[in-house]
Design a protein around this nucleic acid. Structure first.
Length: 677
RNA sequence: GGCGAGGUAGCUCAGCUGGUUAGAGCGCAUGAUUCAUAAUCAUGAGGUCGACGGUUCAAGCCCGUCUCUCGCUACCA
């Protein structure tokens, strides 16, 4: 295995349009922090990079909604995020932000270099342009009627009601959200990074040279590679971001996904003059901690950027985690379905390590996991309190009872004690192996096994029983028990830094070098221990219940919010109405359209003719159930080719707010061709 | 529909290139114990390893079909 001289550890830059929640922590920051603290403990040269990602369209939209500037938004969230990370003990060497001057310069230079090398492809496309506001419109800045569900508030990139992803040009009656005017299509040119040119390089680099990557990561990459890569735009028409450093590119900024990962480099520059060592020396090991939503950017796009630039090293590993759910539902910032870090820190003061422990023990390493408050309580009460806290407390109480709080003499060591030392060294090795392979849950378990070892030792040795008859033996037992507690100060430091500090205070020692743990006893005979206190408190049912209630309230609020009636449409004339040829028809044949999830192909007798049409109702109606049904159809709708079949007309359906579709039929059988008016 | 990941004890998860009676933690039951925040320690119950079929002397692990969950992607007039 390569002997790395230094480590460059990055953690995904959180997007500055909301605070940090447990999903971010479990997915990215806790594993990164544990890994970094572990490396530091081993005396490695390591830098830990973090920062806020502050550009991009969603921030400008949020700003507009609130009537403030984008800078106000990012300042607000950057400060909340930064403070909550600090209070939580995420030990960044630097927590920067992408609105910094250094970042503007770095990102700009990076782009310029690729530009000068001719790495980009320039393309001209048509985009919507707001003539009143005199600017191009990002997809998110356009609303219109969703061509699928008729929701009139669909965005240019996605309809939030039916979940369909859209192109802005698909929208019916597009409207600029900036001025409210109807946008026009206008040509604009942008720079594209030709990922396709790097496809074979990426394929070899990921799938052959890095077989050690997690299966979820390489699997996702393979999927992208097999689908074929396309050139990707790296600039946008927007006034919020890093300006494109090319003449004539006014009004254009770097695409947020281009500038954000460069933020890792900018932050390193701010941190140290020696930044190039960490980014350009082959002996530096670059590791990106991210969530699964970022895999494509960190494994495909950013490496391509670095490769194209030419002077940078590439990531050695990208240990992406899956997602954490909350009480069975997806975490969602917009739906307020989350446990927010800054709130947790207030509501559970001095319990950083409880959350760190719970999220580590339940980390979504191989698949999505669920966080429940019940589990949080259980892990605290039956693991942290009962195993770790209890062991330390037992050792302390016994020592103060029998030896006035001083580390007693080592005395005659038996095989049991020798085995104990060996076991600690073995568990330390387990922790190392697990962490080197990014198996954080496994590492945490090995840590707890050290405390288990202590509990078992005490239970087997029973010092309270033999004190009267053999105080010297008790002296040895407690000497060793305390050494285990001493070893725990160091071993738990990466995982539970606050507990490590408390334990040090209790034992009046400092943590050891990692190498010494298990080999050198940290506490000397006669050493005076500090005051004993509880490392962890039980968490009672009412504390858990109030958190559950809080979530239930959120759920209720969301349910009420998600039942809006689609708003009224503008008035139409009777003439407008009569243009529609709506009539009754009978379904003669029905079959699923192959290779689709939602489509049925129907043959309908309309009275006028027998025609074929396609309808997106397969999720609600089986082909068999449709045959013989009378339906209402819009018969004079412009025909359209769908999946190779010409669809003439549209079946009318009643749509619920949840997107379910219900067939509309005449309540009594009517003649085919009967018109509806 | 295509692609990727996953479906192993009540819960959360391990199971190396296929090899005797499938493992851990928590929960549960019983016993021991009292130094400890009724904590600890020991023992035990619990699984047709998503379903079916196949390859093999032998399959949780390999192959095929199907099914469910998550993600990406296509489709929705």
């Amino acid at each position: 295995m390569k002997n790395w001289k230094r480590y460059t550890i990055t953690s995904a830059l959180p997007y500055a349009n909301g605070p940090i929640h447990i999903g971010h922590l479990a997915g990215v920051y806790i594993p990164a922090d544990i890994y970094v603290r572990y490396l530091r403990k081993r005396g490695k040269d390591v830098i830990f990079i973090g920062g806020s990602d502050e550009h991009g369209v969603p921030i400008t939209i949020k700003a507009r909604q609130e009537g403030v500037s984008p800078k106000d938004i990012v300042d607000r969230y950057h400060n909340i995020i930064k403070k909550s990370f600090e209070d939580f003990g995420i030990s960044f060497d630097i927590y920067s932000r992408t609105t910094n001057k250094t970042h503007f310069e770095t990102a700009s230079e990076f782009f310029k270099k690729l530009y000068d090398k001719g790495e980009f492809v320039e393309k001209t496309t048509e985009q919507y342009f707001d003539t009143e506001a005199n600017q191009f419109l990002a997809d998110r800045y356009i609303t219109g009627t969703c061509p699928h569900c008729s929701n009139e508030k669909a965005y240019g990139d996605q309809c939030e009601k039916c979940g369909t992803s859209l192109n802005a040009t698909d929208l019916i009656n597009p409207k600029s959200t900036i001025s409210g005017s109807k946008p026009i299509k206008k040509e604009t040119s942008h720079w594209f990074l030709p990922l396709d040119k790097y496809e074979s390089f990426l394929r070899k680099w990921i799938l052959e040279d890095h077989k050690e990557w997690k299966t979820n990561v390489s699997g996702q990459c393979k999927s992208w590679l097999d689908m074929g890569l396309q050139p990707r735009a790296v600039s946008r028409d927007l006034d919020w971001g890093v300006p494109v450093p090319v003449e004539g590119a006014t009004g254009k900024v770097l695409y947020v996904w281009f500038d954000a990962p460069i933020g890792y480099i900018s932050a390193t520059k701010e941190l140290t003059k020696d930044w190039e060592k960490y980014w350009k020396d082959e002996d530096s090991r670059l590791i990106h901690f991210i969530g699964k939503d970022n895999i494509v950017f960190h494994c495909i796009v950013f490496p391509t950027m670095l490769k194209a630039e030419g002077s940078f090293i590439l990531p050695e590993n990208v240990p992406a985690n899956e997602f954490l759910n909350l009480e069975g539902d997806k975490i969602s910032t917009s739906r307020n379905w989350a446990v927010w870090l800054h709130e947790y820190l207030e509501e559970f003061p001095d319990k950083q390590d409880v959350l760190r422990y719970t999220l580590c023990a339940n980390m979504p390493e191989t698949k999505d996991n669920d966080f429940t408050w019940k589990d949080f309580q259980l892990r605290n009460n039956s693991e942290l309190v009962a195993i770790l806290g209890n062991f330390v407390n037992r050792a302390m109480v016994l020592t103060s009872k029998y030896f006035e709080g001083k580390v007693p003499a080592k005395g005659n060591v038996t095989d049991v004690e020798k085995e104990l030392d060996k076991a600690i060294i073995a568990l330390k090795a387990d922790i190392e192996n697990s962490l080197e392979n990014f198996k954080f849950r496994e590492a945490l378990k090995a840590l707890m096994d050290v405390a288990r070892l202590g509990n078992k030792y005490l239970a087997d040795a029973e010092p309270w029983k033999i004190y009267k008859t053999d105080p010297d033996r008790v002296s040895t037992i407690l000497y060793y028990s305390l050494q285990i507690a001493g070893a725990l100060t160091s071993l738990c430091e990466p995982f539970l830094p606050f507990t490590s500090q408390k334990l040090c205070k209790m034992l009046t020692v400092s943590t050891q070098n990692w190498e010494d743990v298990g080999n050198i006893h940290p506490l000397s005979e006669g050493h005076l221990l500090g005051e004993s206190f509880l490392l962890f408190d039980k968490i009672e049912d009412d504390a858990i219940q109030s958190q559950v209630d809080k979530l239930l309230a959120t759920k209720k609020a969301n349910d009420e919010k998600s039942l809006p009636v689609v708003e009224a449409k503008p008035e139409v004339s009777y003439d407008d109405f009569t243009k529609m040829d709506i009539r009754v028809g009978t379904v003669l044949e029905a079959e699923r359209v192959p290779k689709t999830q939602k489509l049925l192909k129907l043959k309908v007798d309309t009275g006028l003719d027998v025609r074929t049409l396609i309808s997106g109702i397969a999720e609600f109606y089986s082909p068999e159930s449709m045959i013989g049904k009378q339906v209402c159809i819009l018969a004079n709708l412009q025909p359209r080719n769908i999946k190779g079949v010409e669809s003439k007309g549209m079946i009318l359906m009643a749509e619920g707010t949840d997107g379910t579709l219900k067939l509309i039929s005449p309540t009594e059988v009517s003649l085919n061709g009967a018109t509806i008016k």
